[in-house]
Design a protein around this nucleic acid. Sequence first.
RNA 1: GCGGGCGUGGCGGAACGGUAGACGCGAGGGUCUCAAACACCCUUUCCUCACGGAGUGUGGGUUCGAGUCCCACCGCCCGCACCA
Length: 879
Amino acid sequence: MSSYTAADIEQKWQAAWEEAGVFTAKRDESKPKYYVLEMFPYPSGRIHMGHVRNYTMGDVVARYKMSTGHNVLHPMGWDAFGMPAENAAMASGGHPKDWTYKNIADMRGQMKPLGLSIDWSREFATCDPEYYAQQQALFIDMLDKELVYRKNAVVNWDPVDMTVLANEQVEDGRGWRSGALVERKELVQWFFKISDMAEDLLDSIDSLDNWPAKVKLMQANWIGKSRGLEFGFERTDEGEPITVYTTRPDTLMGASFVGISPDHPIAKDLEASNPEIAEFVAQCRKGGTTEEALEKAEKLGFDTGLRVKHPLDPNWELPVWIANFILMDYGTGAIFGCPAHDQRDFDFATKYDLPIKPVFIAEGTEEETLTEAFVPMKSEKVRYIRGFAGAEVQTGDEGVNTAIDKAEAEGWGKGVTKFRLRDWGLSRQRYWGCPIPVVHCADCGVVPEKKENLPVRLPDDVTFDVPGNPLDRHPTWRDCACPSCGAPAKRETDTMDTFVDSSWYYARFTAPRADTPTVEADADYWMNVDQYIGGIEHAILHLLYSRFFARAMNATGHLPDTAREPFNALFTQGMVTHAIYQTTNPENGRPVYHYPEEVITISSLADQHIAVLKERMLASGRSVSNYHQIYDQYREDGDTPYRVEIIPSAKMSKSKNNVVDPLNIISSFGADTARWFVLSDSPPERDVEWTASGAEAAAKHLARVYRICAEIAEMDDAAGNGDEDLLKAAHKAIQEITSNIDSFGFNAAIAKLYAFTSTLQKSQAGGPAKKEAARILALLMSPMTPHLSEELWSLLGGEGLITSAAWPVADEKLLVEDSVTMPIQINGKRRAEISVPKDMPKEEVEKLVLEHDVVAKALDGAAPKKLIVVPGRIVNVVV
RNA sequence: GCGGGCGUGGCGGAACGGUAGACGCGAGGGUCUCAAACACCCUUUCCUCACGGAGUGUGGGUUCGAGUCCCACCGCCCGCACCA
């Protein structure tokens, strides 16, 4: 009998699949289609365990759907534009294009051995001119539909390198290369009008039935619909009133100042004439542009000297402050501060000694000096002591609504709905991205490139020896003729955000070689993505932008109405983590990170997280093989320098030396082992920790399955003992595992496959029953371990490829249980159990329970206070 | 700072509001072997000799019954619009 050799088996069956072309997707109206998509990777050059997990999950779904009669589309591509390629070019010369395509070739070579059911004929990279040409066509169509426009926006500016920085290139407010303090600078940039669709993007979240609730909630909060009051504060000088927006107009009588953003037009006016204000505003512009940086920055304010009149009392004057925490992008860029009911305003008022007057207090309390802002839920009733609209006691929501009504009735303000969602700035001042296909003409203004001239190709002759955008300083590329009048003009040198590339790739996969962005028949047939799988880190931006793009593509005629929500179901998977092995360098106290193979883990001694360095153990002349005894001796000797600290469940990171290379795992155990392991130990939505022992266990188990099935394959056709029981167990397994796979419970499915394997091994059933059960096992395992399953299938006399075989269906007759065991609880604690026929009426169960020794003893002659019988599940006796 | 999530044995984790700890790892014991490896079998939440009792981050609450629902707190993780 041969043994399980993963390398041979896997190569053999991959070749067989390739030959049969089983994964090539073709339109077939006779079958229901199923489109499985995993978020495509950035071509960093190496696949990592996270990719293996992501693509294995998608592959399980794809193969499972294939076996249930679906016409499956399961494509793969590369999110290939972006900064790392330029960084590599800066660091070690070379061209971003060469670096990227080499990485793609490398990663494709690393992915193929996994045996994924991918239709490689549809592969593309977003940096292929054929792809970005169509993206440029989409851009032009969107421009035509006024879904794109230009306006000023701030960027991180490095004043030393004279270049724009990405947020991740700003470290502690300084440029990562120059170390210079970063400033916020305004540039004219391109924007997608995603805010036009805010209402629809929010309302449609309700229709996303198969999306995780947490993702829907995050998106809803991000879009951030709010109802509030917009009104003007009259100035005491002759200037234009200051328009503010507030979601708490009911607190207007607690106003103690008006705050404006440092980027507010009034601040800009004052900046020009007042050096002190100019200095303050410049101070506010220091630092990065992220909301996090702005929110965490110390609250700074400057009294402009301007005064405004309170709308409800013209004799009441409020000072106008410039405050660094007010965003020009949200609302009107101006607020009124009510320190009593907003913690940020409270901190600000405390710092600058502004009044803090409560508008409302908790019911049943008296007004007192506040030590922090009082911010109850809006649904909570409070007592208004400085209200101006509505009842004295009302909820915050009622207070807000009556305040808006009153302002509208009196004509000094209007209720408005606002969204937190800002328009999507897509301009990037970088080379390695999709060129924005427009031309700037002195006479015609901004003119889109003609479609027949697309793509606007990136020039190859560029250098990265100086910071900044090579397109900007390219000698000839920039110069062109105006597409409209033919006069000399300049190309736009900004390229597109890489989020644009990934916002429509799912649609492109339906017709990847077409000379239009999509093809109607293909998009109609394949869209939507039935199952999308990727990391939770994309919960907001990528998914929201994709939802926007699907709508925009619908508006420009590139997707059907039914594809406005492109992803029917979403699954967000967790990371693959690995322990970090750390010792301390005695000379400088810095941590030293060790590779897993340098360490012997001894985790189950009385001390937890014990590991020792293999090298030092060997150097000391001690054997590695019986390390437990040796470690005990170390401890007795008080010999501790071999001790390695284990930090469990850490994100894999090159700098921590805790990265497990999938290729190593595949070459030592095979792809099926890697696939089995990444699915086995944790629920898919949570992180999974890669452990060497777990991987070995997976490999051992697969070898065991092979051995068991190989033995069964040689059995004769005689009946044995318990044939019926084995088949019952097999059909129970079909039922449970099918339901686990349907609900992404891959770890639970694998646990049941372990259990069923043991049942099969221990069964005394005869050849026919065992062969049938073993074939069912092979089928049930086939989405996870396709190569091994093919091999077993052929050993056990299965017909054709298991990849093309039908998923087993549980026979209802074999699932029927005659009796059930019901636990008996007394006051909610399990005390006994009884076995009763499955359909025994409630009354009879009650009778049996009351007769039970343990229950009778607990009742001690008294009647139970309550007797709850949940048929088929549990009995609870309350005494 | 804001938004979202997670927290169960020595470890990864299982558990429609209904027997907490399935399955796997590690560990202990055993069978086989000259020995080892492999394989196979048994035990393994904690306290207690036992009877029993306790137990799902902490503290409250709802319920006949809470790991699961609600409130507060602690810790960790993800996102915050130019990382992908």
